[in-house]
Design a protein around this nucleic acid. Sequence first.
RNA 1: GCGGCUGUAGCUCAGCGGAUAGAGCGUCGGUCUUCGGAACCGAGGGUCGGGGGUUCGAAUCCCUCCAGCCGCACCA
Length: 572
Amino acid sequence: MASTYDVLLARLQVAFDTLEVGADPVLRTSDRGDYQANGVMALAKRVGRAPREVADEIVGRADLEGVASVEVAGPGFLNLTLNPKLLNDQLVALLDDPRLGVASAPAPSTVIIDYSAPNVAKEMHVGHLRSTVIGDALARMYRFAGHRVIARNHVGDWGTPFGMLIEHLLDLGEDEAAANLSIGDLDSFYRAARVKFDADDTFKDRSRARVVALQSGDPETRRLWRILVDQSIAYFDRVYGHLDVTLTPEDVVGESYYNHMLEEVVRDLDRRGLLVESDGALCVFPPGFTNRDGEPLPLIIQKRDEGFGYAASDLAAIRDRVSALHADELLYVVGTPQAQHLEMVFAVARLAGWLPDRVRCEHVTFGNVLGPDRKMFKTRGGETVKLVALLDEAIERADLSLLRRGSELKAKQRVHLAMQIARAAIKYADLSTERQHDYVFDLDRMIAFEGDTGPYLQYAHARLRSIFRRLGEPWSAGSVSFSLGAGEERHLALGLLAFPEGFEMSFAALQPHRLCVYLFDLAQRFTAFYDACPVLSSVGALRDERLALCDLTARTLSLGLSVLGIDAPEQM
RNA sequence: GCGGCUGUAGCUCAGCGGAUAGAGCGUCGGUCUUCGGAACCGAGGGUCGGGGGUUCGAAUCCCUCCAGCCGCACCA
């Protein structure tokens, strides 16, 4: 089905095209009418005529029969009020549409989304939260939009620290070490290795030798390294499970995966005459980048010691993703501090011809998670906050709230529900602020059941489902018609019909918070309706109509939340 | 110094060149003998960091200044 917005836009577009082909009607929802079109003024300017006159002409030429009534206001606004029959027909169509009006991409693209990227043998902490949550929401949005998503978890599984980590593993004994790692105690493992490395020269020498052995492919060293990697991946997988993130171990394609391609990256850059030796390092100087002294800034491909910089594996990854995986689109959900690095990598990949213009390549940046003091979020002791600790605390609080409220659920169900609420609280708080902005992590605020929070949306959904439970029998729409006599009903209905725009705008801009804004607005429309319009105690056609509105609202909330990676429990 | 991001109500944040800048929390007042009150309705609260400019129209685009955060050659 065509969304209501699209129906309206198509009719207006025809009229605008008669004055200037492709002129944007600038169609928006409005509080002056159901929608307003603001494109007349700009168009009048371009064609050199009076705005009111152009507005009148557009109104005269637009075939809005059966769609909307229109009024010209102010300097040339077109205020549109949707036709009751159109409203009814669109709502009836939604009842049978599992996608609730959102079109599926006619030509699916292959999209590679690079996100999460924790480090092997290190705990996942708040620093990974946003990349993981935002990346996963985007992956779900792309899938829902009908595209093919290849997730890539570019874990840090290579580099000099692995010398000391492997030596520490040997000191502990493989079994002991694996046991430590498998319970997720990665940080103390890493710290212990670090302490020895700093204090003990023999250990330091062993570690360095071990790095060389690792890099030269020594089988025994590789086997030991594999233990570290596998234990870590298993641990990450458990964290993703707790967070309900769709990443799997198969999506883990770490830095080491690209090792065998690095020589070729260097050779190819050299062949194309892009490689420059500078201070003993092999670099590319993409135009337009300078350092603090205004000198050209290099992207270091191979270091003086012949080791490869991380730019090399990033470049290899682009080559691989474009040529072997046939990506149409590359997204990097990586923190803002990497902006310049990634810009340079993209620039070099374009220069080298590995990244053709047809492939969209974008750095999806995000701001920091701040503590109550507005500085980077840390524990009171100044340590990074572990992701599992964060989630555990949220679960505990959610469980307490349920208890305080006198939840009748059994302990086991309650804990599961507390987990769903905790995840919703944390994810929604993260997704509902504009991506690029920093936000203050405030568990009290995000887990509150009132206000613009994940739990509030879940609650709205649970109340809706409760209506259908009380109904006592399966409900089906049958032959409902929507007369929308009450203002609250009409307001809610317009909200339901706007789901496609809500999703599309959020998706096109890669900004999950717009979908959050939409869902919160819908939930508010619903609660106002719920307060004013009795459902179960009404009778006949009115009752059917209200039940249908409830059904659509519940499905829209549930679908919208699921696209963001948030559960909508039946009962709370 | 250069580059990037940010500055909107007491607090946390939305705001797509359009009409009177909106939510949530908090505050104050109200509703309803609760289809789940974790609700609803209303009020108060703003030099949109300052100053210029472009435009019929600027929180939004441009310039400049102020404040804050981040990055700027071999750790990834």
